[in-house]
Each structure stands twice: as structure tokens, then as C-alpha cells.
């Protein structure tokens, strides 16, 4: 079970969180023309990386905040966690 540092609450066990997928995916703006390909990339196409992956988790049984977690998908090493509004660059 992973041990995740919620930027709002501190170290918490994985069972307090739910997984939210790739955090680098950006939703196309509303009321804007989007090509089929771009929309498919947003809705469906994911890289399924092996290695460093920036992903979303929600601290569901805690502060309910969505956070960003940089994790190695192969080793589960967590490099850092960020608040939703923190820049991940």
C-alpha cells in the first residue's frame, strides 16, 4: 500500500485516496473548436508510461482535494506531491 503525502494533510495511506489518471492531460477549453484527434487524445488516448508519471489523486477520505503525485509506475517511488494549483514544471 502506497504512502502518499497529501500537500494539505501530510502522510496518509493509499486507502484514503482515489486515483485520477494522468495529470498532464489538459481539457480543451469550452466553446472552442476541437479536432476529432485532439478530442480523442483528451478523452481516450493515454501513454501508459513505465517510469515517472505525473498523476492525479483525490484525498477522498481526507480533505477531498485533488492533488498531483509524481510517481514511478514501475517501482511506485513517489518523487513529490503537489497541490492542484501548483505548477508541475
Amino acid at each position: 500500500m502506497l504512502y502518499i503525502k497529501c500537500p494539505h494533510c501530510g502522510m496518509r495511506s493509499q486507502n484514503e485516496f482515489s486515483y485520477g489518471g494522468d495529470a498532464t492531460v489538459k481539457r480543451p477549453d469550452l466553446n472552442k473548436e476541437v479536432s476529432d484527434q485532439d478530442w480523442d487524445n483528451f478523452v481516450y488516448n493515454r501513454k501508459s508510461l513505465r517510469g515517472k508519471h505525473l498523476e492525479l489523486w483525490q484525498h477522498l477520505s481526507g480533505c477531498r482535494q485533488w492533488i498531483k503525485v509524481e510517481r514511478d509506475t514501475a517501482t511506485h517511488e513517489i518523487f513529490r506531491t503537489l497541490k492542484a494549483n501548483e505548477d508541475n514544471s
Binding site: 482515489s18 485520477g20 481539457r27 492525479l56 483525490q58 477531498r64 482535494q65 485533488w66 492542484a84
Partner: peptide, 13 residues
């Protein structure tokens, strides 16, 4: 609820 929180916190803060 999670769905609303997702959009409010991440997409349309």
C-alpha cells in the same frame, strides 16, 4: 461529488 470537485479544483479553478 468527486466529479464536481474535479472540475472545480483542476479544470475551472
Amino acid at each position: 461529488l468527486s466529479h464536481l470537485e474535479y472540475y472545480l479544483q483542476l479544470v475551472w479553478p
